[in-house]
Amino acid sequence: MSFDYHAPRSVGEALALLERYGEDAHVMAGGTATVLLMRQGLLRPGHVVGLRAIDELRGISRTGSGGLRIGATVTHREVERSAEARAYSSALIEAFASVATVRIRNQATVAGNLAHADPAQDPPPMLAAFGATVNVRSPRGGRALPVSELAVDHFTTSLAHDEVITEIVLPPLEAGSRGTYLKFLPKTADDYATVSVAATLRLADDGTIAETRIVLGAVGPTPIRARRVEEALRGRTARAVAEAAALVREEVDPIDDARGSVSYKREMARVWTGRALARLLR
């Protein structure tokens, strides 16, 4: 752990620093993940570009169309306590409030969480289920990409080294759409999930399922979208849930670890997908 720390005041300054130092620079927002990796000696950047002093990366607000904009350096706790976020969806609050402990949520930021790309984290599946996008800037300009395309592997994103997430934008919820977030914690309340399920669902006027989006955490190298389950439910009722949820077993791609074997996690993905849907259909 030996680096120069830079505290740019604007995104432009930050991008200039990233351009100048290239691969030797690492972006830090809240610092929880980065500090850990640096302490273990696994990450050894020569330059750390801190985003904390950049005003334009802060704040939570509703968008004109009824969506939600979350600044990159907003902490988990800020989302948890935000009236705007709560008005958007209480499921969003549930996902953010599920992360680790209050101490970590006070320090860790929304964009930092996404950039860390830990597949066991809680907000990414929920943000993906809401169809959120991230706005990213680099010296080459800006782009927007869906949250679901951000993580590409364990702890790996599609971001270039000189790209900075500036904000997360959630689209307006369609009328009647609701969301839920469930996390399976068979050991302790402060553990990472064995499996987590974020889901949104909208019923048609006839009571059938018009649309559902299901994203699972902790059972693949990235959050996993359960598209086959979603397909199987379209136009169907609650009676189709058990059969549809069983399809998730083949969609997830878990690993054996302290939180369970591959076969157990596949089954738990099925059980908790079913429970999340049942909750939305209650």
Binding site: K187, T188, A189, D190, D191, Y192, D257, A258
Partner: peptide, 23 residues
């Protein structure tokens, strides 16, 4: 303590879980 070939694979409170007040 989970061991694989003599190595502890969960050597931290992140992976070696002990009860919290909520448990």
């Amino acid at each position: 303590l989970r061991l694989e070939d003599g190595r502890v694979t969960n050597p931290s409170f992140a992976d070696y879980k002990i009860p919290t007040i909520a448990d």
